[in-house]
Amino acid sequence: MTEAQIEKIIALLGALLVGVTAAVQLRNDWAAKGLDALVTKVLLGLMAVGCVLAFLAAINVLGVHA
């Protein structure tokens, strides 16, 4: 297994863990009110999107892979 493959596998698992956790947190916080809660929700949501992107990159769907 090459270094890149190991990196991808860790990234894949990490993306699943972090993404799911972020999504769950987002659901839990959905009812919270106030400006800080709103901003947190937006930022958490974008971060979950980031996890999806990292996941897709790890399974070679996105990005350039040497």
Binding site: A4, I10, A11, G14, A15, A57, V64
Partner: peptide
Amino acid sequence: PWFDTAFAALNSIVLFGSGVTMH
């Protein structure tokens, strides 16, 4: 050369993970 996507994905997850822990 293009940038190394694999390592960047790994490193991104480290940063995103830190976001969740901070939450």
